[in-house]
Design a protein around this nucleic acid. Structure first.
Length: 635
RNA sequence: GCUGGCGUGGCUCAACGGUAGAGCAGCUGAUUUGUAAUCAGCAGGUUGGGGGUUCGAUUCCCUCCGCCAGCUCCA
């Protein structure tokens, strides 16, 4: 007698050798029925064999990361097996489980095409249908190397050689295929019911551009076809929301061939930018920041002083003026340093918070460019806070709270990552430790959980990065708080302490939006172009049924604009259905129809881009409602 | 930058070794219309740039530029 735990937690008793149909009869829950038949694949198998294997009956749903990894990892082995069957000369790289699926890297002469992917999928189906058990075995190091050498798997040999001395070297075998692997796996290939090969792309062996580029096949898999379908649907939704597509449709911005990575903003895009900036200024003034503006071009000597020459040169643009060498700023900090340095400060003056909408230029690799998300010129909503050492923690907390306030306003979820000292760092290790500890203390005091990225800090200091999550669950790095003990030294910044002596202030670099351009890109995708009213380029669109109502519409449009509402009137001689279609495609927030009835009653037939039909609304009430809604989000 | 794919009028796309075609948008005219496309006409492209193969190239080859996916990097 064996107890089998079902997905819904229910336990049933089965006897070895019992017929599948009898087992299924015991299960009332249809989901569980499906599950059991899925595992057993309609065959009569002995139950000892099924239950013996480590907890696989439960991988019917990704209820924990381990189950998901095992499932995807087995999927990647099936992919590799299929590829080896079709292209025996292919050498295997690695095939891990990743965020939304898995991949496998192959080194092979033949360039894989989309048609090849279809063939590979077919072969994978055969492997799934064969329902091979996955069998683990362990080999001593020398035998493991010999084994892989025999198969000419040179990358695997390299991996084995790099494994720590004390680590077990395990392999998993499924039918005619064996792979070096630490596991875990599901018990049989038959469990991988729903999978799809997504794409093939180049990827450097072990992620280093010095190594050979392999062909990486991306794929995903799920326990159920329905989940795979949902995932694909989500990808399609993301595609529809692509800010490059919506940006074009709404006429917000464009990046032209004449300036790769240098975006143009058009009138409607500028409205969004202006509103964000206005909001940003108001919030900064509230929090004791003073705004500055520093030059885009400054001489080369300055960049030697700041350390950018030594650490950031590859990303900078240079120019000559008369006989002098100049650089276009890739960061705003040197300008802020000079601004601080223009006069003397007392300890009573600190903290000094200087903020700047600073446009920077960075030479990014051409292949890295991506719409507004990754560009070569962007505007950082920067600030540099100069403070006494004892003010560090409070200032960091102030910035954390500020960023939290802004992200919540846009209904973003986010998480924080702490990046520590990189290999190419400036200054000395003790100061770095102090800076890292200050960030940790602030986080701990706020009781905020965070991830640590070892060695990922900026060259001048450790940082807290804010990764915000949009409505589709994708994350983007935006805000960052960087603590810097280096720049104040390099620029010899001082303040006069209560002892009458000169002391060195500590500095924070920070951004909230990160880059206005990227933030707008994220907002476009997050809201699918249907912006909160205060950001919407066209807040109200008045549509006349016939030209007869044009004077009424034009006058009302003027009145709304006077009241501070962005209003457009469409009085063209077109059918109302046509105008509505255009207004909806433009994602105008409120679309109002004006005809005989409306003119008589002083009302509007209103439809909201987000909520649909709102019916007939009195004009005065509607204006009031609009003004309230515009204000509500900017409190 | 690297690997692969792609580049046709403002936009979305078609065709093809014999010098390009549609829809939308634009313009003109008719229509005066009640909730996702009224009708007709006109105009618009040396098929990303340059070079080569060919009797002939937009189609094949080379090269440069740009775009897309991924790698690397990052706000």
């Amino acid at each position: 007698m064996i107890n089998v735990k079902l997905q819904d937690g229910k336990v049933i008793e089965v006897v070895a050798g019992e017929k599948i149909i009898d087992i299924i009869k015991k299960i009332s829950n249809s989901l569980a029925k499906e599950a059991v038949s899925a595992i057993l694949n309609g065959e009569t198998v002995s139950l000892e064999e099924t239950v013996e294997e480590d907890s696989d009956l439960e991988i019917l749903k990704f209820d924990d990361e381990r189950a998901k990894d095992a499932f995807r990892h087995t999927s990647s082995h099936i992919l590799a097996q299929a590829v080896k069957r079709l292209y025996p000369e292919a050498k295997l790289g690695i095939g891990p489980s990743i965020e939304n699926g898995f991949y496998y890297d192959f080194d092979m002469e033949h360039r894989l095409t989309d048609d090849d992917l279809k063939k590979i999928e077919k072969e994978m189906k055969k492997i799934v249908e064969s329902n091979y058990p996955l069998e683990k075995f362990v080999l001593p190091r020398d035998e493991a190397i010999k084994f892989m050498k025999e198969k000419s798997e040179e990358y695997k040999v390299e991996l084995i050689n790099d494994l720590p001395e004390d680590e077990e070297i395990s392999f998993y075998k499924q039918g005619d295929f064996t792979d070096l692997c630490a596991g875990p796996h599901v018990s049989k290939t038959g469990q991988i019911k729903a999978f799809k090969l997504m794409s093939v792309a180049g990827a450097y062996w072990r992620g280093s551009e010095k190594n050979k580029m392999l062909q990486r096949v991306y794929a995903t898999s799920f326990p159920k076809q329905k989940e795979l379908d949902e995932y694909i649907e989500k990808l399609e939704e993301a595609k529809k929301r692509d800010h490059r597509k919506i940006g074009k449709e709404m006429d917000l911005f464009a990046i032209m061939e004449e300036g790769p990575g240098f975006p143009f903003f058009f009138p409607k895009g500028m409205i969004i930018r202006d509103e964000l900036e206005r909001f940003w200024r108001k919030e900064h003034h509230k929090r004791g920041y003073q705004e500055i503006k520093t030059p885009l071009i400054l001489n080369e000597q300055l960049w030697h002083t700041s350390g950018h020459w030594d650490h950031y040169q590859d990303n900078m643009y240079f120019t000559k003026i008369d006989d002098g060498d100049y650089a276009i700023k890739p960061m705003n900090c040197p300008g802020a340093m000079l601004s601080y340095k223009r006069r003397m400060y007392s300890y009573r003056d600190l903290p000094i918070r200087l903020c700047e909408m600073g446009q920077v230029h960075r030479h990014e690799l051409s292949g890295a460019l991506h719409g507004l998300m990754r560009v070569r010129t962007f505007t950082q909503d920067d600030a540099h806070i100069f403070m006494l050492p004892e003010q560090i923690k409070d200032e960091i907390i102030g910035v954390i709270d500020f960023i939290d306030y802004v992200y919540k306003l846009f209904e973003f979820k986010y998480h924080i990552e702490l990046s520590t000292r990189p290999e190419d760092f400036m200054g000395n290790a003790e100061e770095w430790d102090m800076a890292e500890n200050a960030l940790k203390e602030a986080m701990e005091e706020k009781n905020i959980p965070y991830i640590i990225n070892e060695g990922d800090g900026a060259f001048y200091g450790p940082k807290l990065d804010f990764h915000l999550e949009d409505c589709l669950g994708r994350t983007w790095q935006c805000g960052t708080i960087q603590l810097d003990f280096q720049m104040p030294q390099r620029f010899d910044l001082t303040y006069v302490g209560s002892d009458g002596e000169k002391h060195r202030p500590v500095m924070i670099h920070r951004v909230v939006f990160g880059s206005i351009e990227r933030f707008i890109g994220i907002l476009i995708e997050h809201f699918a172009g249907k912006f909160p009213l205060w950001l919407a380029p066209v807040q109200v669109n008045l549509l006349t049924v016939t030209e007869k109502f044009a004077p009424f519409a034009l006058e009302l449009a003027d009145r709304m604009r006077d009241a501070g509402i962005r209003c457009e009137a469409d009085v063209r001689n077109e059918k109302i259905g046509y105008k509505i279609r255009e207004a909806r495609n433009a994602r105008n927030s409120y679309i109002c129809v004006i005809g005989e009835k409306e003119v008589e009653d002083n009302t509007l037939q209103v439809r909201s881009i987000k909520q649909g039909e709102l019916g007939s609304i009195d004009i005065d009430d509607f204006i009031k409602k609009l003004l309230d809604e515009i204000k509500a989000k900017q409190a």
